[in-house]
Each structure stands twice: as C-alpha cells, then as structure tokens.
Write a protein that binds this DNA or RNA. Structure first.
Lengths: 154, 154
DNA sequence: AAAGATTGAGGTTTCAATCTTT
DNA sequence: AAAGATTGAAACCTCAATCTTT
C-alpha cells in the first residue's frame, strides 16, 4: 500500500538532513529563548540589553561600540541606540575616550550591576530547567556539534 | 601559579554546561539564519513570511490563523498583519469561512507559488552550504539532541 | 579617505484592548 | 462567556546617510 498524505496536505519530497537540522535549530533556539526573554522582561530588559550588560560586567574598564558588537551573542547593527536605552535608565555610562576622541567607551554602572546580580540566580535556574535534563554528556556533545555548525562556509 | 585573567577582564565562575549549550544554541541559530534571511530579502520576504508561504503551500485548501500560528517554526503573536502584507502583494488570498464565520482561511495564490518555486533551489543550496560539511551522521545526531532539548520542562 | 559612532526613516514586532461570531 | 481574528500604540530593528575625529 502506497504512503498516503493527510487530507488537504500536499506531499513533497522528503526534506534533506541539512534542512531538517536547520529547521530544528531555529525552532529550538526560539523555543528555549522565550522563557528567558520572559524572565528578563520582569526587569524590562530585552535579551540584547541583557547581553550588553553581561559583556560590560566582564570588562569594567569599558568597551567601545565595536568591541561590544563583536562580543554580542546575536548580531546587532545598532549598538548606539541599544546603549542609549541603557544609559537613559542609568544602567551604564558613556564617555569619549581621552586619546582617540572618535571612540566612545561604555561602562556598566552600579544600577546595571544590581540588575544583573538580581538576575544571576534566576537565569541559572532557567537554564537548568530548560536543559538540565540532558545531562552533562549530551550537553557537551550538543555544544560540539553546534561549534561544528558554525565552522561551515558562511 | 594561579590562573590570571586578561587585562580589564573580571574573572567569573566557569559557566555551567547548560549555560554554555544555551548560548551556543542561540548564537548558532542567529549565525545560520542570517544568510538565509539575506537570500529571502532578494525577493522581499522576511523569514516569517517565507515560513507562512511554505506552510500554505503544504495545505492548498487553506488554513486558519490559528493553524498557521501553530505550525510556524518561530512563534509569532501577530499572524494577522503578517498575512496582511502577503495579501497586499497578492501572494496569498483570504476569505471568511462559510460555516463558522469567525474563522478566516488563508490560501496561497499563484504569485506565492511562483516566489516559492524560485526559492526552492537557492534555499536548498544555502542549507547545504551551511550544514553540508557536517555529514548525514552528525546532522542526525544534532537533530536528535535538539529534539531532546525541546522535550524539557518548558 | 577611513574608522568610529550617530541619526533618520521606514517597516516590523509585541502587548493589550477590541470587535465579531459562536 | 469563549473562540477567532483584528486594531492601536509603543518599542524595536534595519538600512542607508551623516557627522566627527584620525
């Protein structure tokens, strides 16, 4: 008996392994990022803003826009206005550098450190809740495969 | 000799395996989705719009907003305006259902099918270019791990 | 001219509130 | 009242053009 499609469903060629993995990857990232974004929203931070704060916490001497852009986990073509919003809330401070007056150094402030501190444990909990059931071994296998994905042509 | 941090870099506790995998996942999804989004932009489609068209191609009898939302690879809380834009370009058509006049059925049109047809090969090529170097075995392992990720608490 | 950052304009996303039909 | 879809307002993202300093 030949395979039959569900009603109203046009059968198409089987998806390639590449396409299947690609879709799984996007879908999974979206699914897992959502609860974290929800958590961040309780303190009115977008994932990108949170990412910037964590980057700046790691470099208390301050970083230029370009350096921040390089370290972002997600590409962002408008660091300026991202920093604008954080500065308006006094979570960070900005200033021109003394030597090269083209560059602007962004630094995290006490307010930013406080917000981050209040999020550290909840974020860790969320990660564990979302991925802890995989166990260390599979998590490392996953990390390895993802690194291999990023080593492709593009 | 005790481990020393890079200049200006505040050392922090080693990230948990969950956090590392989480960040890798988000980063990788962003990185891989970008070239595809670029390709779609050549025909003025966003990834979400492309996703809707593919979903509708699979169901020529039409689907309700709710059904479309369920099948989206990425969650979208505003299917209405997504469809608005596609309808304005005559890639899809919409109409109220006869029986239950609350529901709106969206159907793909000839224009939408044409755009999709023009994209099928380039999209396949992009997937292969991005992920083909992994090989079938690792791709399947990846798909399995991603499925396990989605089977978590949330 | 090039590097670094900012601004303007348009489209998109998001939440919540609303409208319509059951 | 509940399900299904639409609308309003505000924040956000993106591209290209601009400004400033080297």
């Amino acid at each position: 008996m030949k395979p039959t499609a569900a009603p109203g469903r046009t059968p198409r060629r089987a998806p390639s392994a590449e396409e299947a993995a690609y879709l799984d990857l996007i879908r999974t990232a979206d699914l897992l990022s959502r609860p974290v974004a929800q958590l961040l929203k309780t303190v009115d931070l977008s994932p990108a803003q949170y990412n910037v704060l964590r980057i700046l916490r790691g470099s208390p001497d301050g970083l230029t826009c370009g350096e921040i852009a390089n370290r972002m986990i997600t590409r962002d073509p408008d660091i300026t206005r991202l920093l604008d919003r954080l500065e308006k809330r006094r979570l960070i401070a900005r200033g021109r550098d003394g030597k090269d007056r083209r560059v602007v150094l962004a630094r995290i402030g006490p307010g930013g450190l406080d917000v981050l501190a209040s999020l550290d444990q909840p974020v860790r909990d969320a990660h564990r809740r979302l991925l802890g059931h995989l166990g260390e071994e599979r998590l490392r296998a996953l990390a390895g495969l993802l690194a291999a994905c990023r080593g492709g042509e593009d």
